[in-house]
């Protein structure tokens, strides 16, 4: 029978797992948001040269299980990098970076769809006003169009944030000590799997719940100026 001292050591380890899970969440979300936004903007353009590879990319990323993408990157990634960047060096793809890459690439496809849909829902007049004022295109997107796009896409983006939070647990299958891995190991070692797995579950629930007030704050910020007349 393990003593409570042993338990506290395991909970310490779980804090380390939490840290890895949170880092994966932040990196994956930021990268998928950035890539997905750029792709979403490109998707609204007319040029077929961009549309075809984008369509292929999106059907792969939304059609293939994330786990498979992770395995492909983790087990195949170093070979591909070596082939691309030269045989004189060897490239190791760490579990962390392949996890971030896989989750970001998959969710970038979903962000792309969301952003693309939101752009199409913006009034055409917003684009025309930017055009006739002669606003440089990059700044028009940055200051005028994207803030409105993100306002429209916010509920969907919050969903993606929570999906990514849960998907980070996939990296336990390539040997990274995220929260799920640590909980499983601790549970096995102490023959008390239930305790540790429940604690881990509570962490995910707490993180999702924490998202709500954060999203509300962001929503208030993005909704600036949306007050109807007289309000």
């Amino acid at each position: 029978m393990p003593t409570s001292v042993d338990y506290s050591g395991y909970f310490q380890q779980m804090l380390g797992g939490v840290s890895i899970t949170v880092q994966m969440l932040l990196w994956s979300f930021v990268i998928s948001l950035a890539i997905g936004t750029v792709f979403g903007i490109l998707r609204t353009g007319a040029s077929g040269v961009v549309q075809i590879p984008l369509t292929i990319y999106i059907s792969i990323m939304t059609g293939v299980p994330s786990l498979l993408i992770l395995f492909i990157i983790y087990y195949g990634g170093s070979g591909v990098l070596t082939a691309l960047l030269g045989y004189d060096r060897s490239f190791d793809v760490s579990p962390f970076s392949s996890g971030v890459a896989a989750i970001a690439m998959v969710n970038a496809a979903y962000v792309c769809d969301l952003v693309h849909g939101a752009i199409r829902n913006l009034p055409k007049g917003q684009f025309e006003a930017c055009t006739v004022l002669g606003l440089p295109r990059f700044h028009a997107w940055r200051l005028i169009l994207l803030p409105q796009v993100f306002r429209l896409a916010l509920p969907g983006l919050v969903n993606i944030w929570i999906i990514i939070l849960k998907e980070t647990s996939l990296v336990s299958l390539v040997g990274l000590s995220d929260l799920v891995t640590v909980a499983k190991t601790a549970g096995g070692a102490t023959s008390e799997p239930f305790v540790f797995l429940i604690v881990a579950s509570f962490f995910y629930i707490a993180m999702s719940t924490l998202t709500v007030p954060l999203a509300n704050r962001l929503e208030r910020r993005l909704n600036r100026g949306q007050t109807p007349v007289g309000a």
Binding site: Q126, T131, V132, G134, I144, P147, L222, Q226
Partner: peptide, 19 residues
Amino acid sequence: VRIEVGMVFQQFNLFPHIT
């Protein structure tokens, strides 16, 4: 040409999120 020409639309098209 767009520097020489200003335009006003039926739907105003003001940017809603800035003053």
